[in-house]
Design a protein around this nucleic acid. Structure first.
Lengths: 151, 151
DNA sequence: CATAAAGTATATTAGTATTATAGACTTTAT
DNA sequence: ATAAAGTCTATAATACTAATATACTTTATG
């Protein structure tokens, strides 16, 4: 049930990009180096990750001097589930309960396979969380705790 | 968020061992070969898995002619969570929210790290399911569906 | 228009994990 | 004594992970 470094770094980067810029209300633009430094990630590795997120349509970028990455949609329209799936693949613990990558798992009767039923519950529980938590939700939650320490 | 083959096979085997024997009410004893054949698993691979479960105290065995494996406790005292952890390690997606294998993940402030908060929710959701589902529950659920097809 | 900053793209590598397979050993029923 | 069955450890093949390297493209700006 592990989140890969790739997934972890990608999620951290997206959260960083969702954090409101100091003075502007425009979408926050950040450079790879900037994010890598702040989150203590290898810049070269992060590069690949951001590129994957860009190719998946979740980030836009600007090339050349003064360029960088910024969210393709507003922070409350991007869920952690979307990001996770791009970087780490399906949420389902076994293929036979996957919505995005179903494959039979070879048990004689899938309908009554007890393991499959439970793993289906797990899949639903996890995707309930990830698909209903937007980047904006994450920022909100961080801020709530910062204002209310120790709760 | 994948369940390894090791974990999958182990869970399948434990469920098979929890299924009540035909005529006896004694704990079901089965041989490696028997389980491997029925679940379509490499017998040699299953051997290692069952041994690990035995060393973790979840199975007992009888050596020699007519030997085999049987559950060390009754089916309603063994949860999928226990089995999972023996074979696949901690349930937590990141170490910094693990109960059984905590390790800091290096973010500047763990208390207000948004990713950590969400991953904590995921961990809790998954362990809620796995730790509250016993082998007996799985059998029960299978039987319910078998008697009530299409529900 | 040359240059440097920044993203794009692909290949390669070192290490680790996964999924087995193999073989020798121990225990036990008959 | 023998064969059936679990025990134990090593090894192999493959895939995946995390990272690094290198060459290329775009763009702002002096």
């Amino acid at each position: 049930m592990r989140l890969s470094k790739r997934g972890e770094y990608g999620l951290r980067a997206m959260i960083a990009l969702a954090e409101p810029a100091e003075n502007s209300s425009a979408p926050q633009m950040m450079q790879i180096k900037e994010i890598a430094l702040r989150e203590q990630i290898s810049a070269k590795f992060l590069e690949q990750i951001l590129l994957a997120l860009k190719n998946a349509g979740m980030l836009h970028s600007k090339m050349g001097v003064g360029g960088g990455y910024y969210l393709a949609r507003s922070a409350n329209e991007i869920t952690l589930g979307q990001i996770f799936r791009v970087l780490d693949g399906p949420v389902a613990p076994v293929k036979c309960v996957s919505q995005m990558a179903y494959e039979p798992c070879g048990c004689p009767d899938e309908e009554t396979c007890g393991l499959r039923l439970v793993m289906g519950d797990v899949r639903n529980a996890v995707s309930d969380i990830l698909d209903h938590t937007s980047l904006a939700d994450v920022i909100k939650r961080q801020n709530t705790i910062r204002k209310n320490p120790g709760v």
